[in-house]
């Protein structure tokens, strides 16, 4: 009904009118306000060139925020199904909500590719493969790294209490640290402090002062590192600051020495591989014999931060 529509990408009209010959996929991701998802988008965008060169289309669907996350994700899944896609690439963040919706999609012949999160439930949704980090392994690597750097008592900060993937990260940190002889305390901050750097910094400060044996902290959120570095600056405590994931500001801190390291899961690769490999499976029938494919953990510290900065300038890291 609109010629411009058919000329550009990703529209339902196109899906219906061109029928079964094109392979159309939807990539579902988290909040539009979440900078981490922009790195995934860069990977998806780059893979889209390959998909379009082969006659397919890619839709990139994101929730507005994390307020009503489970239902919002189900909404996006149903939306992709309604638009007649052939494949969906998606992380599983809220298994209870997402699994039934993904099973329903699969029963209509839609192939599922999983990335970023939810490795333990991969078989429940019958995903082709998984591209992402194993939260536990990432935590394990991070905990071990800090303990080997001399930490004896690590604080593991969870910014959303009850989030299974974050608890898994701290469980990994605990076991990794234990292997190198350090102990771990988990700190849950209330959800109203999620994203609030000042509030989190003051909460961490209270912990550092209350227990002077803490000599390292790892936050499950990037902003937690900003808060942690700030709390260290305020208290003068001798605490190594680390976090899962990173922003341009964390790279500056690693360069400046106010943050020890960041645990990277390479979101660019997750978006790129999930999109291109889902499409290749639909179009060419390819399969990767490595399953799952782990894109992390990769530790960023002073030794490799400059290389990461170059990638960050291009939006890929």
């Amino acid at each position: 009904m609109n010629f411009k529509t058919t000329l550009t990408t990703a529209l339902a009209a196109l899906v219906i009118s061109t029928g079964a010959f094109a392979q159309d996929i939807a990539v579902i991701a988290g909040s539009v306000e979440d900078a981490f998802m922009d790195k995934i988008k860069k990977g998806v965008d780059d893979a889209t060139h390959m998909v379009e060169a082969n006659g397919g289309t890619v839709q990139y669907l994101r929730t507005q925020n994390y307020e009503n996350f489970g239902p919002d994700l189900v909404t996006l899944i149903n939306q992709a199904v309604a638009q007649g896609v052939d494949g969906i690439a998606i992380p599983v963040w809220v298994p209870d909500a997402q699994i039934p919706a993904l099973q329903a999609a699969a029963s209509q012949g839609i192939k599922i590719m999983q990335y970023n999160s939810g490795l333990p439930v991969k078989d429940d949704i019958g995903a082709l493969n998984y591209f992402g980090s194993d939260e536990y392994a990432a935590g394990f690597g991070g905990g071990k790294y800090l303990a080997e750097k001399g930490a004896k008592h690590i604080l593991c900060h969870i910014q959303v209490p009850g989030a299974i993937n974050l608890e898994e990260r701290c469980r990994g940190v605990t076991d990794g640290a234990a292997e190198a002889g350090a102990k771990v305390t988990v700190l849950n901050t209330p959800p109203n402090l999620d994203g609030d750097v000042t509030g989190t910094a003051e909460a961490l400060k209270a912990e550092f002062i209350g227990d002077s044996s803490i000599d390292a902290m790892v936050s499950c959120a990037d902003f937690g590192a900003a808060a942690g570095a700030n709390a260290v600056e305020q208290t003068g405590a001798n605490v190594m600051v680390a976090a899962f994931d990173f922003s341009p500001a964390s790279l500056e801190r690693i360069s400046a020495g106010t943050q020890t390291m960041a645990i990277d899961q390479q979101p660019y690769l997750q978006g790129f591989l999930a999109t291109s490999m889902l499409f290749a499976n639909l179009k060419f029938g390819t399969e990767i014999s490595t399953d799952p494919v782990l894109t992390g953990p990769a530790i960023i510290d002073a030794s490799n931060v400059e290389a990461v900065k170059a990638g960050a300038a291009l939006g890929a890291r």
Partner: peptide, 16 residues
């Protein structure tokens, strides 16, 4: 003030 203290600006930070 937040930007200069934490050297980073985020889109979602003012709602509270």
């Amino acid at each position: 003030l937040q930007l200069l203290t934490y050297t980073s600006a985020q889109v979602a930070s003012g709602q509270p």
